[in-house]
C-alpha cells in the first residue's frame, strides 16, 4: 500500500464519519460539525494529492485548501447564527422537533 492510498482511505473514513454524524445526530449543532468534518476530509484529499501529485511546485492544492478553510469558517459562523435564530423561535435544537417551517 503506497502512502497516497493510506491518506485517501483515512479521508474516506473521515468523510463517512462526518456523513454518519450529519445524518444520524439529533442536535443541529452536531449536524453542522459533521458537515465541517466532511469539508476537512476533502481538504486532506487536496493536500495528499498535492504532495504526491506530479507538480507540487504549482501550489494548487495548498491554495485550494486555504480557500476551502476560509469558506468553511464563514459557513460555520452563518450556520451557527441560523441555529441561534431557529432556537429563539422553536426553543429547541432538536431536529426531530423542528418539523414546521412557519412559526
Amino acid at each position: 500500500m503506497n502512502p497516497l492510498t493510506g491518506y485517501l482511505l483515512l479521508s474516506a473514513l473521515l468523510f463517512s464519519i462526518g456523513l454518519a454524524g450529519a445524518l444520524t445526530r439529533r442536535n443541529a449543532i452536531l449536524v453542522l460539525i459533521g458537515i465541517e468534518l466532511m469539508l476537512n476530509a476533502a481538504n486532506l484529499n487536496f493536500i495528499a494529492f498535492w504532495r504526491y501529485g506530479p507538480n507540487p511546485a504549482a501550489l494548487t492544492g495548498v491554495m485550494f485548501t486555504i480557500f476551502s478553510i476560509s469558506v468553511a469558517a464563514a459557513e460555520a459562523a452563518v450556520g451557527l447564527g441560523i441555529i441561534l435564530a431557529v432556537y429563539r423561535h422553536a426553543k429547541t435544537t432538536d431536529l426531530d422537533q423542528m418539523n414546521s417551517m412557519k412559526g
Partner: peptide, 23 residues
C-alpha cells in the same frame, strides 16, 4: 431524549455504503 434522531438506521446505512464505495 436519545442522542440519535429517528432517522438513524438509514443514515448509518448510507454512511457505511458511501465508505464502502469510496474504499
Amino acid at each position: 431524549q436519545p442522542a440519535l434522531s429517528s432517522f438513524w438506521v438509514p443514515g448509518s446505512v448510507v454512511a457505511s455504503a458511501v465508505f464502502a464505495v469510496l474504499a
